[in-house]
Amino acid sequence: MRVQECIISAPGKAILHGEHAVVHGKVALAVSLNLRTYLKLKATHTGKVCINLPNIDTFLCWDAAELKEIIPFSCGQHEEVKRLDTERVKRLREFVGVANGNLDASDMATLAFLYIYLALFGSGELPSLTLSVWSELPTGAGLGSSAAYSVCLAAALLCASGAMPAPLKEGDHTARWCQEDLELINSWAFQGEMVIHGNPSGVDNAVGTWGGMLRFLAGTIIPLSRVPLLRILLTNTKVPRSTKVLVAKVKDKINKFPTILTSVLESVDAVSCTCEKVLFEMTCEPITGEHYNVLEELIDINQHLLNIMGVGHPALDTLCRVTLARGLHSKLTGAGGGGCGITLLRPETDSVVIQSTIQDLKDCDFDCWETSIGGPGVQVHSPFSVKENILEILNRY
């Protein structure tokens, strides 16, 4: 292998504005979360291919020769990443033992790894390696955990296969790839997401690749090069929901009240566009309290509009009420119906207020993190730049 060892990370994602409206041709703003997935790849000489995913209790090893027999015609052509190889996916599902069954998190992660690994190395001798992953992101919460995993997989395996260089130079703590290499990472990460989800939008893996903020409209994803870093509270209500069911619910309401809901969708679109304008202004001029006042008002407006669409939930109402009692403004992020919400933190918000709010939300049986949005996308790290507790976990395997 071209790379003997590397540590890669990629961020999760949240939707700032535009949930559900984006399905109907309106603008959505997706942002990176400073909650990241970390992957360590290490070449070995054991003849084994091992994957360790302690977050989901998955620890698997195969003989490289055994994997080679699954798909003897794996092409390993790096440039052919536009179309999913459904025959390879079928064979891998049979190999993993889920040919016709539903996939759990372990199955999906395993299939995505094997698919990319065999696609990139299948034309030659399969290298033995150990791949360990640890994530700060909860799974199944709509925060892009699978995409962050796929982005890390793609970046690590592309470097190991020699399809692109590892950009970390001696003395660097972190480094990023050039635009051309990021596009290659994103293409392969999207393959991983298709293996996992079937028909993803491509937003999650794009956020994981480029970071910052992306504008999504009618299938076109545009990374916004200049966005401010904003502090937030991220809250998981732990109320399960089905994105598919909620999307269908909004569609039914549009069909029932087309005139009313069309206006609602237009209003959500206006919120997204206004927010984008304000955030751009915050990168071009001194940030003022008025900027944050507008961002807070937009959060409140969008939350009300999402409730009109029917994707709110009593748990999300509780989140908004609890944070507003502390002078903070919140909205759901993602599909709604439970799931997660974000709360904007102003620069002057006192740490005592923040910690008290977090405790209030935990008292509601919610999970809550203080984090930020708008940070960097996929990166390669020196061991010195990785959080000590995460490095300890990655080095354990």
Rank of each mutant, 00 (worst) to 15 (best):
D363N: 13
Y292D: 03
E285C: 10
R346N: 06
Q303N: 03
C284P: 00
Q355V: 03
P347H: 11
L306D: 13
T349C: 02
L324Q: 13
G310M: 01
L316C: 11
L328R: 00
L306R: 09
T323H: 02
H304L: 09
I358M: 15
F280C: 11
P286L: 10
V294M: 13
Q359R: 11
L328K: 01
V353Q: 09
K331Y: 12
S356L: 07
G334H: 04
H291D: 06
I342V: 07
N307Y: 00
I299W: 02
H313K: 05
G310P: 03
I358T: 14
L319N: 03
G312E: 11
H304D: 15
L324T: 14
E290K: 11
V294A: 08
R321W: 00
L298V: 05
E281G: 06
I342Y: 11
I358S: 13
I301P: 00
Y292V: 01
N302Q: 14
R346Y: 03
K331V: 04
F280Y: 13
G339R: 07
D363R: 13
E297I: 08
C284Y: 05
T333R: 10
N307A: 11
L295Y: 08
I358Y: 06
F280N: 11
G338R: 05
G337P: 00
F280S: 12
S351M: 12
Y292S: 02
E285K: 09
M282N: 05
D363G: 09
D300G: 08
K331A: 09
E285Y: 07
E290Q: 12
H329K: 14
L344K: 03
V352W: 14
Q359K: 12
P347N: 11
I301D: 07
A315V: 02
N293W: 06
V294Y: 12
C320P: 01
P314W: 15
C320W: 00
T333D: 03
E285P: 00
Q303Y: 00
G338K: 05
R346F: 04
T357N: 04
E296A: 03
R326N: 13
G334P: 07
L324M: 11
V352A: 10
E285I: 06
Q359C: 10
P314F: 15
F280E: 13
D350K: 12
T283W: 05
G338M: 01
L316D: 13
L319K: 01
G338W: 00
P347R: 15
I301G: 10
E281D: 11
H313L: 07
T288C: 09
K362L: 04
G327W: 01
V353T: 14
C320M: 07
V353I: 14
L298R: 10
I299G: 06
G312W: 07
A325K: 08
L295K: 10
L332W: 01
R346D: 06
L345D: 05
S330F: 02
G337S: 05
G289L: 15
A315R: 07
R326S: 08
L306V: 09
H313V: 06
E281F: 08
R326K: 13
H329M: 10
L361Y: 01
I299C: 08
T283G: 04
Q359M: 05
H329L: 07
R321E: 04
G339I: 05
G334I: 08
T333F: 08
L298H: 09
L319M: 06
T349D: 02
